[in-house]
Amino acid sequence: MRFPGASVDRDEAAYVLTGAPLDATTTFQPGTRFGPDRVRKFASTYDDYDRRTDSFFSDLRVHDAGDVPAWDAVDDYLDHLSAELRAAAIDDAVPLLLGGEHTVTWGGVRATDPDVLVTLDAHLDLRDEYDGNPLNHACVVRRCLDGLPADGADDADGADEADAPDTDDRPTVDEVVVLGARTGSPEEWERADAPDVTVVAPEDVADWTREFDGLDDRDAYLSIDIDGADPGFAPGTGTMEPFGLSPREMRDAVRAVAPHCVGVDAVEVNDRDDGQAAALAGKLLREAVYSHADAN
């Protein structure tokens, strides 16, 4: 199944969409392996024309490269996925990634090497490890900031800098902005207090969006975790968290950030609803493309 409106060949593409159906570490409700095709399916009802930007999605040179089949060796999979996405970036196309669990975002960040990660998410995802696994989906923002220790050892919070293990040379970001976070462990909130992290509570996201005036010529990567939405709007996700964002608040944030992006993903959609989460993810991804193309 091809993403609707993704109508050009690879060598003509300005945007290359790739599915990453990773479902190795999802907690509570698995099913993200079905996310990419589910988003494609529920995006099929949307009109091609966007009045706001006066453009047709099918004219924006989007290519659907299909899925990168997942396997359970997550580190190896991320290496392979990031290489696939980097090939698009090298060709001056913007990678669009459909998850799959949120862990795949680190593959997108490594492929595009942005300065800033902006993520719409209910969770901080700043754990250094979860159940002993530093590549759990609850750790993805931490990996995008701090990388993975080169020896695979956990980087203990509070350790002296000189005693911390070296990290590997895979790209990380300089700053993270988490929009809509409403839960996290004490250690995550402690990491979030550092100057390279900004957390915007759900009730403040609309104001943040209105006041957003760019990133001072820095590149961004935008990650749309569908659980950033209130589960009343998008119940088809693994770890639902009430008191979240409305679809319109997410849309407005995506429209603001997308023009500055070198990559975009939509993740954490599963098959546990009637299509609400997939429909929202597909619509937000299209909004990102319309907004990026209109500005660039």
Rank of each mutant, 00 (worst) to 15 (best):
F56H: 15
W71G: 14
P69W: 13
E101V: 08
G107N: 08
P30V: 02
G31W: 01
V199H: 00
N136T: 03
G228K: 13
D216V: 05
F57P: 03
R38I: 00
D92W: 07
N296P: 06
D274A: 15
G184A: 06
A256H: 08
H123E: 01
A206W: 04
D154F: 14
V141C: 09
V74Q: 03
F42R: 13
V104P: 09
L215I: 13
D225W: 03
S7L: 12
D252E: 11
P231D: 01
E249N: 10
L285V: 06
D196M: 14
L245I: 04
V199I: 06
D9I: 06
R52I: 14
D37F: 10
G99F: 01
A206P: 03
R210C: 03
Y46L: 07
R2C: 05
G132M: 03
V16W: 04
Y15V: 02
D76Y: 11
L126P: 00
Q29F: 13
P36H: 05
E84D: 13
A13I: 05
L215A: 15
T27E: 00
A253C: 01
G232S: 10
W106H: 11
H63W: 05
W208P: 10
L215Y: 15
R33T: 07
D157W: 11
S55H: 05
N136I: 03
A279P: 05
A229T: 09
D193N: 13
G35V: 00
R33I: 12
A293R: 14
A253I: 02
E211S: 14
D169T: 11
D155E: 13
G236Q: 08
D47K: 15
L215W: 14
A194T: 15
A89P: 11
E161V: 13
R110F: 09
T112W: 00
V264F: 06
L179R: 12
H102K: 12
D216L: 06
G66P: 06
S82F: 05
G132T: 05
G238V: 02
W208L: 07
